[in-house]
Design a protein around this nucleic acid. Structure first.
Lengths: 226, 226
DNA sequence: TGTCCCCGTCAAGGGGGCGTCAAGGTCGGG
DNA sequence: CCCGACCTTGACGCCCCCTTGACGGGGACA
């Protein structure tokens, strides 16, 4: 069943949504802040997000933009304000749909179905196992094997690997990786990337000194080579 | 530019929509009945449809279902009735979005953009790739191949290539390239261009001495020849 | 034919990005 | 309370890349 992530600061409404969606046998996770939303969506990517624009910490539009930096997951926006400008901004940064409070649960459910149907029609299923001559990764089971032996990766290392492996063969900028793994606002902390790529290469590459799979493109970003 | 098909029986509104959308340089076709909509969409498939549910001949939901029988074109629904059940039915038979009258033109335009963006994203991802007899460039993945071997370009070299390749076959002045790659204020540093074009030709051209793709127009600027 | 200007080539320098290592800090479990 | 795992932060050295200047060649022009 599809996983849904609900971003709604008002506990009563969040609970109501969760109950109604779970009743349709969706898997539902609910968070109350924008920061938690970015963290949750990155840690455990949902199949669809429902985002309230009125959050206590940061603007819902920023949440959408942050998620859109690395994922094309369908996003449905909720807002109490019936503001045209708000709608336009949200849709333009990448939201898929917009529902104004008060709304009927039937309508929201129909929009969820429509969004999931579109997503299903467009993208192909992803195999969460990565195999290279040097190592194999099972992203779902969180298992890594290098030279026949199982290797332990820390949570942050897993997160970084996932962020990179999601775009095999193509290039990912350092800022993009930082925003996805450490959250928005960390785009300048390139130290983290250096430290963690060194650890990953030490754990997974056959020759950490001359990596063949975790490639650095100087001045641009990083690339995963299968 | 994307082609839009508007299905709206009220002439005044149809005209208003047509004018506004054409002003955004979409190609627009308008019809007033459900039968004409089915005919027009089959004869000349649009990139997006806007469908009013209140049609004189047959229900807009049937129009959507009819189109969905053979096409996945994005469909945005218009309706004067603010009926939950209507929305649910329309979305469930395959509409992509729903706008209730009265609506702001800004909102409709934003939804059109969002729907077209989704459709484009789900299509085959078109990579910006440049191919010449001497070399191939993948601008997104930052990969360059020359004589079967991968070649590394520095960030500045990539930047310069992108600035030039954006106008294939046409001439770009030196000052323009300098301003784009090094920033405003560097328009006089023609040294940089000489040095970097020499590097690019050495890395990518078959005969760097007599370049065939990175052409210098003496006294004027540079030109990229595919 | 001589001079000037623009372009191509080369090499040196220094500055910044990257890899590496290690110490301090935080959090949770025993 | 101690201990270990993990994240953060700073320092250091190296290498690559950008910058800069000098030199030579070729075309335009008188």
């Amino acid at each position: 069943m599809p996983r849904l992530l609900i971003v709604e600061d008002e506990p009563a409404l969040r609970r109501a949504l969760t109950i109604n969606l779970k009743a349709r046998s969706y898997e539902v996770e609910g968070v109350g802040t924008g920061a938690a939303a970015l963290r949750a969506s990155a840690a455990n990517p949902p199949d669809l997000m429902i985002v309230d624009l009125g959050l206590p910490d940061l603007d819902g539009v920023d949440v959408i933009a942050g998620v859109r930096g690395w994922s094309r997951v369908p996003i449905i926006v909720l807002s109490a304000r019936d503001s045209q400008a708000q709608k336009v901004r949200a849709l333009d940064v990448g939201a898929d749909d917009y529902v104004t409070k008060p709304f009927g649960m039937d309508e929201l459910l129909a929009r969820v179905r429509a969004a999931l149907r579109r997503a299903e029609a467009s993208d192909l299923p992803v195999e969460p196992v990565v195999i290279t001559p040097s190592f194999t990764l099972d992203l779902a089971a969180k298992r890594a094997v290098h030279k026949g032996a199982e290797v332990r990766l820390t949570p942050t290392e897993w997160h970084l690997v996932e962020a990179l492996v999601r775009h095999p063969g193509t290039l990912v900028s350092g800022a993009q990786l930082l925003a996805e793994v450490w959250g928005p606002g960390y785009e300048k902390e390139t130290n983290y990337l250096r430290v963690y790529f060194a650890q990953l290469r030490r754990k997974l590459e056959n020759h950490p000194g001359s990596p063949r799979h975790f490639i650095t493109e100087p001045g641009v970003g990083y690339r995963f080579e299968p």
